[in-house]
Computed example of a mutant assay.
Amino acid sequence: MTDEGLPPTLLLVHGAWHGAWCWEKVTSALEGDGWRTRTVDLPSAGSPAGVRDDARALLRELESIDGPVVVVAHSYGGIPVSEAVAEARNVAHIVHLAAFQLDVGESLLGFLGVSVPPGTDGLDAVPDDPVPLFYGDVPVGVAEEAVSRLVPQSSRSAGDVLTAAGWRTVPSTYIVCEDDQAVPARTQEVMAARSATVHRIATSHSPFLSKPVELAALLARIALGSVGSRKGTFT
Rank of each mutant, 00 (worst) to 15 (best):
T2S: 15
E4W: 11
G5P: 10
P8V: 05
P8L: 03
L11E: 00
L12M: 11
L12A: 06
L12Y: 07
H14G: 06
W17K: 07
W17E: 11
W21S: 00
C22K: 02
C22Y: 06
C22I: 13
V26R: 02
T27F: 05
A29N: 09
A29G: 07
L30P: 03
W35Q: 04
R36P: 15
T37F: 09
R38H: 14
T39R: 09
V40A: 08
L42Q: 00
A45G: 01
A49V: 05
R52T: 12
D54I: 00
L58W: 03
L59A: 06
R60L: 14
E61G: 12
S64T: 15
I65R: 12
D66G: 08
G67H: 15
P68A: 12
V69A: 04
V70S: 05
V71P: 04
S82F: 04
E83N: 09
V85Q: 11
V91F: 07
A92K: 04
I94R: 01
V95K: 00
H96A: 09
A98T: 13
F100P: 02
D103A: 07
G105Q: 07
G105Y: 08
S107G: 08
L112F: 15
G113A: 14
V114N: 01
V116E: 08
V116P: 01
G119T: 05
G119F: 06
D128N: 11
D128P: 14
V131T: 04
P132R: 07
L133W: 05
Y135G: 00
G136F: 02
V142I: 09
E144V: 00
A146H: 02
V147D: 04
R149P: 01
V151W: 07
V151M: 03
S155V: 04
A158C: 10
T163W: 04
V170A: 08
P171S: 06
T173A: 04
I175K: 04
C177Y: 07
P184N: 07
A185E: 07
V190H: 08
A193L: 13
A193K: 11
R194D: 03
T203R: 00
S204M: 04
P207D: 02
F208H: 09
S210Q: 00
S210D: 00
E214C: 06
A216Q: 07
A217H: 10
A217Q: 13
L218C: 06
L219Y: 13
L219M: 13
L224C: 10
L224A: 14
G225C: 10
S226H: 14
V227S: 12
V227E: 11
S229C: 09
S229E: 15
T233S: 15
F234E: 11
F234I: 14
F234N: 08
T235S: 15
